[in-house]
Write a protein that binds this DNA or RNA. Structure first.
Ligand SMILES: Nc1ccn([C@H]2C[C@H](O)[C@@H](COP(=O)(O)OP(=O)(O)OP(=O)(O)O)O2)c(=O)n1
Ligand SMILES: [Mg+2]
Ligand SMILES: [Mg+2]
Length: 923
DNA sequence: ATCCTCCCCTAC
DNA sequence: TAAGGTAGGGGAGGAT
């Protein structure tokens, strides 16, 4: 359940604002002055204001008691009445952020955006002309970054600063009212408690350029650990198979699959990491607890132990108490702390705090092995899913399906797990397939069992949300929402043909079956087909030398990992993340919003022999050269090796590819084992038609798009002159920029506010568009999907969701295709780098508006114009000498036009996904 | 038709 | 502070 719930404070905020928008009001337009701008007002929040001190220090002197004090609400209304577009969340559509002042953090976060004082709006309105925003800008454009900042300070100065910091903060102080000890007990051993100055220092010393980085990084990365752990568990299961052979192996399977229905169970530990931690700390079981790296006690000079809610450490697992506050696995700690704190006064008498506990991987490993040992003994077949989760086939023990025997068995298993693990709980879902069992587990949690019988499946699934289907994540959910499909029932209305057309050949078929509760996949543990290592954190390079050094080390790492498996491979892939924006992303040392690029090469002659380290390094460096991303732009790096085969000791005889078919348990070397469960016979039979085809028809995948620090972007369709204006309810506002206004404007605002409170709401159709490469910034907001007339055919739904604008989108007043086309060409031709962000942003906004206005065709044509023009005027061909490399590389002005293309492509992709149900390429 | 490359998506 | 990895499924579109 938790895996899909990557949420953040901003998402919650957005959701709440959506709700409040239902009291929208209609307004008369006063002027067109602000027509070109899309605004977002900083400082609005709706976390319980009584308990949550917003970081915006302007929120303090808000309008309490002063009736003359106008809120941002009123300013918003004013802007709306002058034709501005006002966003409820900070999407990239926002052209200007309006704020009175900025915290340092926001300053850094928004370094590359236009952050403007409200005076700009007021004076523009007063003068009936849109003034240049720059003179009202709040950020000095010094283009500071983590390292630029450091570069300004001499080394000597830096170290002096450090010495001046008294070493008084050795020990992290527990919060005064903290009754429970052992909160990140490691803190006592941690000698450093860095200042913000030091933070930069720390970063410089510990990013990917630091020596020993990889070891430290992989030693700490939970995601790396759990991923590699899965491979280990597959091996562990193979060992179990050998040590404790099944009494009656595959014959059972055949029988059960042909004559009876199977009984599959999905077993998953409840809040795994957290429950292991609480097992040994029962005294705090009733409190909200999260497992993460950070202590979350705020930064630097702050030794009060009071959090400042800024930690971007990710929560790996949280207990169900914490979940009742809205905390989810994968959330930033700071976000979670806000959630917990915000409940103060509502449900609790006094302040509640999220307790953080450190990782204890050895303990998890021990529990995990207990779990698997138990499951192995009770099952006919066992499929590894993760360290805390597996499918088992228990068909042979269920003679009469539906007799309730299934539940008994499940409860026995749960009891065993509880005993063997020292008190950790598992939940179990039961079904006739992996699908139904998996879905049942969601209902079983926490600490329960749920059975979806074949009879009840139809009913259970019809009301199931599509996002509860395994394989339906963020992107598919969003795409379906765009089609008006929210439940499996909705999805069932799509014909198979329609499904395939929309979601692809294979996925279409899968979805068509899954939404009906049909799943014919057999349990199997697939053999490894590739191996690799990536780092997308702490990647900050300044020179090509640093990049080369890092790539070498990473190659070494992959080489070592591959060697351990005893396999060899001859296909090398280099993956790279290239930053889209300057400045540091929201997540500390994170990669931020990036374009992903990859390049691969098959090394001839390495087949079946493997690649020597030096060859690997050389190839990787060449791939990097071909990808041609500047060291400064790198935010992530990964190296993978595929086309794996068994290393035949004598180098003779069979070299089989690692497809599952035909790999026999007894015949294989350790790393190559394909333990498919049941017998290959059966498997092949079932799978042949279902999984065979890899053909192409229509693409559904899309490139999500958003800024790293913006988790959810409720995309209210651009407001046209005659359409409904969104007017937020006053409860959202807590700061008073408006008190600085000239009197006449204030009066205008008052007039507007009066109207707004009178009118009952007309609902404007808004929907979430959140996207990013990273789950942090994704949120499935089921509450925000459309209310559509349930009568129309699914394909009609999407049209209901779209605004039909009276005025077509325009670029500097131009709307005709040829005009815009020409304009864009000239823009690209005339301007060498550097481009002004303003121009780029204008074009981006225009492109998004085009798609929203159902002018996708035009949009794509114009995009092609841009791509071609950039190629023509700013791209220099570079021939690749290699015969194996068939693509031509493009080198671009360091300016960077390619960057503009990247941005626009992402924009358009994203907009298409929602507006057209996701077929960017079909046009 | 099929294969290959460069992506995107999903899950934990 | 903070450690946003990893493997597989699969789609689009070009090369063969
Ligand atoms: N974003 C995530 C998700 C999971 N995990 C780790 C910690 C979890 O404890 C473990 C198992 O993942 P689950 O999805 O099974 O989540 P939990 O077991 O924590 O909770 P649930 O009760 O929902 O299964 O994987 C993680 O580090 N980061
Ligand atoms: Mg779990
Ligand atoms: Mg799990």
């Amino acid at each position: 359940m938790a895996y899909q719930g990557f949420g953040e404070y901003m998402a919650l905020k957005a959701a709440k604002q959506q709700k409040q928008n239902s009291t929208d009001t209609k307004w008369q337009l006063q002027s067109e002055v602000l027509r070109p701008v899309t605004l977002w007002f900083d400082g609005i929040h709706n976390i319980n204001t009584a308990t949550y001190n917003h970081t915006n220090n302007n929120s303090n002197n808000s309008d309490n008691g002063n009736p003359n004090n106008l809120s941002a609400l009123d300013l918003k209304a004013l802007c709306l009445s002058h034709a501005a577009t006002v966003c409820d969340s900070l999407s990239l559509r926002v052209s200007h952020i309006i704020a009175l002042s900025l915290t340092e953090r926001k300053m850094d976060l928004w370094r590359n955006r236009r952050v403007v004082h409200p005076d700009w709006l007021l004076q523009s309105i007063a003068k009936a002309k849109l003034l240049p925003w720059q003179q009202f800008g709040l950020i000095q454009r010094a283009n500071a970054s983590l390292f630029n900042t450091k570069a300004l300070v001499s080394i000597e100065h830096e170290s002096k600063l450090l010495q001046q910091q008294p070493q008084q903060q050795h020990q992290h102080q527990q919060p005064p009212q903290q009754k429970h000890p052992r909160i990140h007990s490691t803190s006592a051993k941690n000698p450093s408690n860095p200042t913000p100055r030091e933070s930069t220092e720390w970063a410089a010393k510990n990013v990917a350029t630091a020596s020993g980085f990889l070891e430290k990084y992989y030693g700490s990365s939970r995601l790396s650990k759990i991923s590699n752990w899965k491979s280990d568990l597959k091996e562990f299961v193979l060992e179990l198979d050998l040590t404790y052979p099944k009494v009656k192996p595959p014959s059972t399977t055949i029988k059960s699959k042909t004559s009876h229905s199977s009984t599959i169970m999905h077993v998953d530990m409840d809040c795994f990491f957290a429950s292991v931690a609480l097992r040994d700390r029962p005294e705090i079981q009733h409190l909200p607890v999260a497992i993460c790296h950070s202590k979350g006690t705020g930064n630097s000079g702050n030794n009060t132990g009071i959090s400042d809610f800024t930690s971007t450490s990710e929560i790996a697992s949280c207990n169900y108490v914490a979940r009742s506050y809205g905390v989810k696995n994968g959330m930033f700690l700071g976000t979670a702390q806000k959630l917990v704190a915000s409940f103060q006064g509502q449900q609790q008498q006094h302040s509640m705090r999220l307790i953080t506990l450190p990782y204890e991987f050895e303990k998890y490993d021990s529990v995990s092995r207990s779990l698997y040992t138990i499951l192995h003994t009770v099952s006919d077949e066992l499929m590894v899913v993760s360290c805390d989760e597996a499918y088992i086939d228990v068909s042979s023990q269920v003679i009469h399906p539906g007799s309730g025997r299934e539940i008994e068995i499940a409860e026995q298993i749960r009891e065993s797990i509880r005993c063997e693990s020292g008190g950790c709980r598992a939940s179990i879902g039961i079904g006739e397939s992996m699908l139904t069992a998996r879905v049942a587990t969601k209902k079983a949690k926490p600490d329960g069992v749920y059975h979806i019988s074949s009879e009840s499946a139809a009913f259970e699934f019809s009301k199931l949300g599509v996002q509860d289907l395994p394989g339906v994540g963020y992107a598919l959910t969003k795409q379906m929402a765009g089609l008006g499909i929210n439940s499996c029932g909705d999805l069932m209305k799509l014909s198979l043909t329609e499904c395939k057309k929309r979601f692809g050949e294979a996925n279409g078929l899968k979805l068509h079956q899954f939404c009906r509760g049909i799943d014919k996949r057999p349990l199997e543990n697939k053999a490894r087909q590739s191996i690799g290592a990536e780092v997308n954190w702490g990647v900050r390079f300044q020179s090509i030398t640093e990049v080369h050094a890092f790539l070498s080390e990473l190659s070494q790492e992959v080489h070592t990992r591959l060697n351990k498996t005893g396999l060899v491979g001859n296909h090398v892939t280099l993956k790279v993340k290239k930053k889209l924006y300057d400045g540091e992303p929201a997540k500390f040392l994170g990669c931020g919003e990036c374009v992903d690029l990859s390049k691969s090469k098959t090394i001839d002659g390495a087949a079946n022999v493997g690649i020597d380290l030096d060859v690997l390094v050389r190839e990787v460096l060449m791939l990097y050269r071909d990808i041609s991303v500047a060291p400064e732009d790198l935010r992530g790096v990964g190296i993978h090796i595929g086309k794996l085969t068994a290393k035949s000791a004598a180098m003779k005889g069979r070299q089989k590819t690692l497809l599952n078919f035909g790999v026999k348990r007894s015949a294989d070397a350790a790393g190559l084992l394909s333990n498919h469960i049941g017998n290959g016979y059966n498997r092949e039979e079932v799978n042949e038609e279902e999984l065979e085809p890899r053909r192409k028809i229509l693409r559904n995948s899309n490139n999500p798009w958003a800024v790293d620090d913006l988790p959810v972007i409720p995309l209210q369709p651009a407001i046209s002159s005659s359409s409904t204006l969104v007017f937020p309810s006053s409860s959202q506002i807590d700061w008073s920029m408006v008190e600085h206004l000239p009197r006449d404007i204030r009066e205008e605002l008052f007039a507007l506010r009066k109207k707004s409170t009178k009118n009952a709401g007309s609902s404007s159709s808004t929907f979430a568009v959140a996207s990013s490469n990273h789950p942090q910034n994704r949120q499935l907001n089921s509450k925000q999907t459309y209310q559509h007339a349930s009568t129309g055919a699914p394909s009609d739904y999407s049209k209901n969701l779209k605004r039909v604008s009276d005025e077509p989108p325009s670029l500097i007043g131009k709307t005709a295709f040829s005009d815009v086309n020409c304009l864009l060409k000239q823009w690209i031709k005339a301007s060498s780098s550097p481009l002004t962000r303003t121009d780029t942003d204008l074009v981006r906004i225009y492109f998004r508006a085009l798609v929203q206005n159902w002018e996708g065709e035009k949009c794509l044509c114009l995009l092609k114009t841009i791509v071609d023009a950039v190629e023509e005027y700013h791209g220099k061909r570079e021939r690749k000498g290699k015969q194996a490399v068939c693509n031509e590389g493009w080198l671009y002005d360091r300016g960077d036009w390619k960057h503009v293309v990247d941005l626009l492509t992402k924009d358009v992709n994203d907009e298409f996904l929602v507006c057209y149900g996701g077929n960017f390429k079909k046009h």
